[in-house]
Design a protein around this nucleic acid. Structure first.
Lengths: 156, 156
DNA sequence: GCGTAACTACTCGGATATGCTGTGTCCGAGTTAATCTGG
DNA sequence: CCAGATTAACTCGGACACAGCATATCCGAGTAGTTACGC
């Protein structure tokens, strides 16, 4: 799984504590990440409708929706793409009992089990939102929001 | 996810219908797969203790355990390795409230959710065995075992 | 005919190339804010 | 002092290199079955 997912998750959480656009350079400095590459990931989040981008001075990225409406699955899908973890190449078509017209992604037993596991994984991720994580973080570290806002303001 | 997983799954199912070693060349011809590369995957399964390998004439691979004792997770782990889907690089260590000695794989909220999803995925795969899949296939295609045995015998 | 030893063919196993996706970087288009100028 | 045009800096966005892993292949080590030979 791509490294950018972790960056995207934490960046979305940080943005949920802010209400003005933040440029990539500031967000990158926050965790000492390569700015240009982080920008690439944020572009993907913007294309997915999770962030909105603003050009020019005082521009940057901000959350497009309230954090309650952004699931972790949304973020993972935006970065990794919509493909499922296991992709069935239907090698059964080459086997002895081959039926050329059959879609083995539906009929193959292995495909079904792998798809079920994939759905279980996605269900877990879809059930947690950025707001849920934010609540948990604030419970354990009440100073986190103020720290983040102060650090961002200092880097502007 | 690696392509070899699909090959390994179907190959293990086929081997569950046989009781003698089958060489890689025969197993590869079965689905028109590149023999040398399939051999590489089967080596991984052998290292994991899922298959046993026999050298020399009349040698090959066979299941090391009864199919009831081989879960799909065993096969996936043998091919893909034991790493979890999402690996936390602990970028929080670079953040403002950094605590150098903290293991963020445990304390980071995102890590916990991602790990929970990973466990849900693994639980599904661990709950299904090669024997389960075999039963399902035999229910829908009773001729499959005989077909497979005949094809293997013809290729020997 | 039988036992033994050499031989041959077959199989696994790891070492060796190639291509593609994830990773990382750079520069141009567009936009905003500030500045400067003239009334 | 104020309005408007110009300018300059800043930001995103996509196009351009690099690297590491999945993919694919090949050849050597070891083994078992076979064959030939001697007793």
């Amino acid at each position: 799984m791509s490294q950018g997912v972790e960056w995207a998750l934490h960046t979305c959480l940080n943005l949920s504590w802010l209400d003005a656009p933040v440029p990539t350079s500031v967000l990158a400095t926050f965790y000492e990440l390569p700015p240009a590459y982080l920008n690439k990931q944020l572009q993907a989040l913007a294309r997915a409708g999770i962030l909105t981008s603003t050009s020019g001075p005082r521009g940057g990225f901000q959350l497009a929706r309230p954090p309650e409406a952004v699931s972790l699955l949304d973020i993972v899908t935006a970065i990794e793409g919509p493909e499922e973890l296991f992709r069935c190449e239907q090698i059964l078509r080459r086997g002895p009992g081959e039926h050329a017209g059959v879609d083995y992604r539906q009929s193959c037993e292995f495909s079904q089990v792998m798809r079920g596991a994939d759905l279980a994984w996605r269900r877990e991720l879809a059930g947690k939102t950025v707001a849920d994580v934010r609540t948990g973080v604030e419970r354990g570290h009440p100073e986190a929001p103020a720290n983040t806002r102060a650090r961002i303001a200092a880097l502007r």
